[in-house]
C-alpha cells in the first residue's frame, strides 16, 4: 500500500501534530507515504474566483502523482474533496481536459486521469480496515468517549467523494473511534459544518456555526472532539477562545486528530503523536491513560 502524500497548505505549517501522528500511524500499519517535492496547494482556494484556474492547479498536482505512478493520500478534507472533484471533471470532460493540459505545458506536465485520490481516514477505513486495526490495538481506550466530527468535504459531494459514507448517516469515523476501545458519541449537531469557509469573509457567522457544535459537545462531556481536517481545526481549536467570549460561556472542549487517538491505542506515547501542540487538551485523559500501564 503506497501513496503520494499530499500535505496541502495548512498541515505542514500549522498542524504538525496531525502530520506527525498520521505518519506514525501509517508506518505502524504498513501504509507507505511518499513525499513528492513539487506538490503545492490543491487549488481549492481559487475555486470561488476562477474555476478553471483552480482545476489547472489541481491537475498540476494530480499529474505529478501520475508521474510517480502513485495514488494520492490527503490529510485535509478540502484538498481531498477538491482533488477528487477535479479528477472527476477532467476524467469525464475531454474538452476541459485538453484545455487544462494546454495550460499545464508551461509546467512540463500532462494530466492523464489515471490515479485516484483518497483521504487518509478513508484509506484507514477501506484499505487497512477495522478488523486489521483491531488486531493491532495494544492499549484500548476503554472508559473514554469522543465526539466525531466528519466535516463536509470528507463525505460530500457524494458523487465525487467516493461513496465512503451515506451523507445523512456516516459511520466510518465512528467505527474508527470505537475500534480504539473508546465510545463514539452520537449527538444532534454531528453533521454540522465547522464554518471554516466563511471565516475569512464573516468571522462572526463562522463562529456561530462552530459555537453551536462546541456548546453541544461541551454539554455532553466526554474527552474531546475528534477531527480529520485542518480547516475544521482552525474553527474548533484556534477560534475556541473567541467563541467562548461570544457565547459568554466556558467551553474548553479538547480537540484532537483521529490519528493521535489511534496512535495512543496502537501503543505509542502522546509526545510522539505531537500532543504538545494541541492547544486544548484533556489532561485527565492523557495522564489517566498513561497511568494504566
Amino acid at each position: 500500500m503506497k501513496y503520494a502524500f499530499f500535505l496541502g497548505c495548512t498541515v505542514p505549517v500549522r498542524n504538525l501534530n496531525y502530520e506527525l501522528s498520521a505518519r506514525w500511524v501509517a508506518r505502524e500499519l504498513g501504509l507507505e507515504l511518499v513525499d513528492l517535492e513539487d506538490f503545492q496547494c490543491c487549488g481549492f482556494p481559487l475555486k470561488s474566483l476562477n474555476l478553471l484556474d483552480s482545476l489547472v492547479v489541481a491537475a498540476r498536482n494530480l499529474a505529478l502523482a501520475e508521474q510517480a505512478g502513485l495514488p494520492v493520500c490527503t490529510l485535509c478534507s478540502a484538498c481531498g474533496g477538491f482533488l477528487s472533484e477535479a479528477n472527476s471533471h477532467l476524467q469525464h470532460n475531454h474538452d476541459l481536459k485538453s484545455q487544462v493540459n494546454d495550460r499545464l505545458k508551461v509546467s512540463g506536465l500532462e494530466y492523464k486521469g489515471t490515479i485516484q485520490v483518497k483521504h487518509f481516514i478513508r484509506i484507514l477505513y477501506e484499505e487497512i480496515g477495522i478488523e486489521r486495526i483491531r488486531e493491532r490495538i495494544t492499549r484500548p481506550l476503554y472508559g473514554f468517549s469522543f465526539a466525531p466530527h466528519y466535516g463536509c468535504h470528507y463525505i460530500k459531494p457524494a458523487r465525487t467523494a467516493g461513496g465512503i459514507d451515506p451523507v445523512e448517516d456516516p459511520k466510518s469515523l465512528t467505527e474508527l473511534i470505537e475500534v480504539t476501545g473508546a465510545k463514539a458519541l452520537r449527538y444532534e449537531t454531528l453533521l454540522d459544518c465547522c464554518g471554516g469557509s466563511v471565516l475569512g469573509i464573516k468571522e462572526d457567522l463562522a463562529n456561530t456555526l462552530a459555537g453551536n457544535k462546541l456548546s453541544e459537545v461541551n454539554r455532553l462531556g466526554g474527552n474531546g472532539l475528534v477531527l480529520i481536517c485542518p480547516f475544521c481545526n482552525v474553527m474548533f481549536e484556534n477560534q475556541q477562545k473567541k467563541i467562548e467570549k461570544k457565547l459568554e460561556q466556558k467551553l474548553k472542549v479538547p480537540v484532537l486528530y483521529y490519528s493521535q487517538l489511534l496512535g495512543l491505542a496502537l501503543g505509542t506515547d502522546p509526545d510522539t503523536l505531537g500532543f504538545k501542540l494541541n492547544r486544548i487538551k484533556d489532561k485527565e485523559f492523557l495522564t489517566g491513560f498513561e497511568r494504566r500501564d
Binding site: S48, C152, P157, G196, V198
Partner: peptide
Amino acid sequence: WHCSTCYTCQESCPQEVDFTEVIF
C-alpha cells in the same frame, strides 16, 4: 460569499440541482 460550502443543499435536492456549485 457567506455560503460555507457544506453541500447540504446539494445533497438534499430532489431535482439534482447542484446548488453549492451554482454558488461557485
